[in-house]
């Protein structure tokens, strides 16, 4: 999809609320991980309005969003900032712009994988899956895992729903729409 069509699609998916943005920077200043972002939310919105949506979609910024909703709560123009970040994440992955090997994306796909296979999420299973790509991160958690084990909190057996494959089928029903 070319840049103009992408921008149209983004605006159709409720992204047009960013046209109200006054560039005050309240969102960026309220963000707990703003220091990690190459373009904080205010800059991201400016990029999109200037026609650089592909740059916004390739940005690491959405993947540092922790969904605390501070930006959305405080925005003086009532722009649903956090929701727009979610839309950018969806578009970035679906259209192939998401940064390669970003650790948040690995964690999220380990989480989604767990839902698709089991219907429920178990920490140890997510960490096992994430650890295949980022073994150092997981090895740093081993002392903590031992402490959890000692306190009978480490779930070895994964939790699951009665029929995970039926749930998966239902989840996939929207794929072609």
């Amino acid at each position: 999809m070319d840049s103009i069509n992408l921008q149209n699609l983004f605006y159709e998916l409720d992204g047009d609320s960013i046209l109200r943005c006054i560039q005050c920077g309240t969102c960026s200043a309220s963000c707990p991980l703003t220091d990690e972002m190459e373009n904080a939310p205010r800059e991201l919105f400016a990029l999109i309005r200037d026609g650089n949506i592909t740059e916004a979609l390739s940005s690491e910024t959405p993947w540092y969003c922790v969904s605390c909703y501070k930006c959305m709560t405080r925005c003086p123009k009532e722009i649903p900032v956090t929701e727009i970040i979610y839309t950018l994440k969806q578009l970035a992955v679906k259209e192939g712009y998401a940064p390669k090997n970003h650790k948040t994306i690995s964690l999220n796909s380990s989480f989604s994988n767990c839902i698709e296979k089991k219907g429920k999420v178990t920490e140890s299973a997510v960490m096992k899956c994430y650890g295949l790509k980022h073994p150092i991160d997981v090895s740093k958690k081993i002392p903590l895992a031992f402490k959890m084990l000692k306190r009978n909190r480490l779930e070895i057996i994964t939790q699951k729903t009665k029929n995970p494959s039926l749930l998966k089928k239902m989840l996939e029903m929207g794929d072609d729409k």
Binding site: P32, L33, Y64, V66, C68, K103, L107, F111, M127, Y130
Partner: peptide
């Protein structure tokens, strides 16, 4: 930091 405490 919620779940981002794992990767970051």
């Amino acid at each position: 930091g919620a779940s981002l405490a794992v990767p970051h």
